[in-house]
């Protein structure tokens, strides 16, 4: 059997055996990344929308910076969060290092620029369409933000998915601030890294396939929901 064949077999075996450890790892992956995306979205969506509707000096620079931060290396984010949460760091007394909370913080930081930048673009496009109508109704730019965000909701789902994809797939940040502790902070990507370092490539690839299948399932659900809502809500 080829390496890929063994990987597929390992993946299938993992899923079918209903391995409790795997379920825990998948569950933690989802919990950490979904929480991170949710928290990031609460900050990033209003921020991105504000950046789209407000005009102020330095705005262009901020947009460029935000777009550039989409490529923020996870390892760098992990390192920064580690330095902040380490006992030797400013927030050390919170004792959050090597906990899922620390991982959520790191991933939230990682995906905030992504969601904010995509929100900004989406809202800017929509605002172009709505500008005259909203001005005619006497809606000021700031007051338009909630309406624009709400009307962009189907497109913004894509921004959330992009953020989730980034969060669930990254390993650099969570392995540093989580420590890949078995049963506590081990998620799909750090488990894959561990199996790779053990040279168990089929198992690593198998875990990777589970991750991809999960991503496909999430995106398919979102796609279906998006289509349905568009048909029902216009």
């Amino acid at each position: 059997m080829t390496e890929l064949g063994r990987a597929a077999a390992a993946a299938l075996d993992l899923i079918l055996s209903g391995d409790a450890e795997l379920a825990g790892i998948v569950g933690l992956s989802l919990q950490v990344s979904l929480s991170a995306v949710l928290i990031a979205a609460l900050v990033a969506m209003p921020a991105g929308a504000l950046l789209a509707v407000l005009r102020f000096p330095g705005r262009g620079l901020l947009v460029v910076l935000l777009n550039a931060l989409m490529g923020l290396p996870p390892v760098v984010v992990g390192l920064l969060v580690y330095l902040a949460l380490s006992r030797a760091g400013p927030l050390g007394s919170w004792g959050l290092l090597f906990t899922p909370t620390a991982m959520i913080v790191a991933q939230a930081i990682l995906v905030t620029p992504i969601i904010a930048a995509l929100t900004r673009q989406t809202v800017a496009d929509l605002q172009e369409e709505y500008r005259e109508q909203l001005a005619s109704l006497g809606v000021r730019p700031l007051a338009a933000v909630p309406a624009l965000l709400w009307d962009a909701r189907f497109s913004l789902l894509t921004a959330l998915l992009a953020g989730l994809g980034r969060a669930v797939a990254e390993v650099g940040a969570v392995i540093i601030v989580g420590g890949n502790i078995a049963g506590v902070t081990r998620v799909m990507t750090t488990a894959i890294a561990l199996e790779t370092s053990k040279g168990d490539l089929p198992l690593a690839l198998g875990l990777g396939m589970v991750l991809v299948a999960l991503a496909v399932a999430i995106n398919a659900t979102a796609f279906g929901a998006q289509g349905l809502l568009r048909r029902v809500q216009g």
């Binding site: 380490s86 030797a88 050390g92 090597f98 890949n180 078995a182």
Partner: peptide, 19 residues
């Protein structure tokens, strides 16, 4: 027991930071 497994150099660094 929560094990953070890294290289010896990094493990010592972690411990030096009180982590």
């Amino acid at each position: 027991v929560r094990v953070v497994a890294v290289g010896t150099g990094q493990a010592i660094k972690l411990a030096q930071n009180g982590d």
